[in-house]
Design a protein around this nucleic acid. Structure first.
Lengths: 350, 350
DNA sequence: CTGAAAGCGCTAACAG
DNA sequence: CTGTTAGCGCTTTCAG
């Protein structure tokens, strides 16, 4: 099916234009001056031959790659997809191309297998989405000689990183719930990237600061459908009056479960999410959450990487504090439920 | 930052192992037999030197690329992100690496600019997500010599393609609504990829088949928040008893708008979506929709591409029919509303 | 300003 | 089975 015509080479262009190969190279790269006359000839030849320089050959000799690898645990999850979009946009603007590598597990051998193909490519640098365990593992397996930046929710690694301060935002969100009058706040965790996520840490910190009880956490997968069960479970426990969920999708699942159990949000239980997912404002009730600008995070990360590639040592961190988005899924606690919890009775408002 | 150690080359490995360069190449590629003794020596040297073959050099001489480009109009939209995930998984399994190229507009010059960087890379092939105008444009700008497959909702192009038969599914969904007793079905379009999308065509076909009136369509952007306005607008028109939305996210926005206007779904107006978005089952009411296996579509597309790369001419199409997912956002029409519409009065059930 | 010459790191013939 | 000899398509000296 591919027609036999071999793509034109720089030599073909040179011959067509009646100049030497290096001259063509010079108009291509702009590395040196070329007389307007020859430049025109070359440009004409390039157009006529539909010539495209071979990146492989170019990289081989110039040792300058134009590919940036993005290493992520999943490409389809909301925050990741957004971050990738941000990275790609800025990378394209800077003349780079983006290569995607998915690392599914945190197992060292698996990670090595996944990234090895990518590493043989001539890479200018890599951006690692370090929000989950595979990301953390990938970061540790990357050779020291490739410029890298991590995108994260917590400032922690030695490599340059762009962060969205989750700890701070989670703390504020919990403060907000406490300020509404809730005796304490329960927490549904997303699968953690390390021993403990920034979201969980911030929640714990707020509780400690307020001298509130620190209840055991609920765990959820990334699938919001699994969070529905957590919600029904929560509805059964009268001690729960406020819930901070690890992300909006989980919050939606939890709210669904609570509603299925016959309780109302926020009248009986307050629920807040995290991320400000595009659908969170359309949910009933509209979700109170913390805005996470993932696309912006990706862009900030890429800028950091670009500096690193250029050998600039300056800024190694770029941090941003996610603003709270107050909508209506959280309210003051239901006095009935609070007293029922205190007396140990199960109150079913169904 | 990067330490000065240059990466080991095949020559370094050969020297370290005490063999010739081609012998190292042979153990690397497995192209020819190498005595166990030398093979071991070479493998040891590779390990000690942390040697990684340069893909650039390899491609330059072998003319076999290991990169597959995915060209899409947006990487973060649900269906696209899922398709990319499917492509990436299978590509990785087949030893390929995936490069992402985003094409934001359908303007030829813009498209050329976006894909030119990618095309200079040594590409084994390309997968084009042809669900929107930029995708369609990109497909037309690709040189004839790169193996390509399109992912689409309608079987139409000359290039091999994997399709999810949207027309058929949209028709069935509309049939279903009609079967519930609705006099006709209104339609909110997603931004179309061509003159008319398969989703719209299927809807029109079902209406025509049933001899139902074909009302003018509503248009929406990809942002579900914009669909809220469409919903409030719909609520004002008593003639609307059933709405088929171009995708689930738009349906969610429309439902929100209808609810904001004081009407109920499905009691006053039935609304169905398309795609079976992960949150659609958790929505209130749970969305009736058509399942779209985007990740599977991506995988089918990649398999087609792999065959094409290998020069197999066999199958050029892979089509699948999305099954309906009946939940509860659609029901029989509200008799009151229907008669009000017939008499030209505006019925506000608020 | 421009051409000739020399490789970048690797694989593809070809002898042995 | 293994080493030698040629390049792949490009950029980079280095003379002119």
């Amino acid at each position: 099916m591919t027609n036999g015509t071999k793509p034109a080479t720089i030599a073909d262009v040179a011959a067509r234009a009646g100049v030497s190969v290096p001259t063509v190279s010079r108009v291509l790269t702009g590395a040196a001056r070329v007389s307007p006359a020859k430049r025109e000839l070359v440009e004409a030849a390039i157009a006529e031959l539909h010539y495209r320089p071979s990146a492989a050959a170019r990289v081989l000799v110039s040792r300058k790659a134009q590919v940036i690898a993005v290493i992520a645990g999943d490409t389809s999850r909301y925050g990741y997809a957004e971050a990738i979009r941000g990275i790609e946009e800025d990378a394209r603007a800077a003349g780079y191309t983006v290569m995607i590598t998915v690392v599914e597990t945190a197992d060292d051998d698996e990670v090595d297998r996944a990234i090895s193909a990518t590493l043989t490519q001539p890479l200018a640098g890599a951006v690692v989405l370090k929000f989950d365990a595979p990301g953390v593992a990938a970061l540790s397996r990357l050779p020291a000689d490739v410029p890298v930046v991590a995108l994260s929710g917590v400032r922690d690694t030695a490599v340059p990183q762009a962060v969205l301060d989750e700890t701070r935002a989670a703390e504020e969100l919990t403060d907000y719930l406490l300020g509404l009058g809730h005796p304490t706040v329960h927490h549904v965790r997303i699968p953690p990237s390390r021993r403990e996520d920034g979201r969980t840490t911030g929640w714990r910190r707020a509780l400690r600061k307020a001298d509130a009880a620190i209840p055991p956490t609920f765990d959820s997968t990334w699938d919001p459908r699994d969070a529905v069960d957590v919600g029904t479970q929560i509805a059964k426990d009268p001690a729960v009056t406020a819930v901070f969920c690890g992300n909006d999708e989980i919050a939606m699942g939890v709210i669904r479960g609570i509603a299925d159990a016959g309780l109302r949000v926020p009248e009986d239980v307050s629920v807040v999410g995290f991320d400000n997912h595009p659908l969170s404002g359309l949910w009933s009730p509209p979700l109170t959450t913390a805005e996470q600008d993932f696309a912006g995070l990706g862009r900030r990360g890429l800028q950091l990487l670009l500096k690193e590639i250029d050998g600039e040592e300056s800024k190694r961190y770029s941090s941003e504090r996610p603003p709270l988005v107050i909508r209506s899924s959280a309210a003051a606690p239901n006095p009935q439920r609070v007293s029922a919890a205190a007396s140990g009775h199960v109150a079913e408002s169904a």
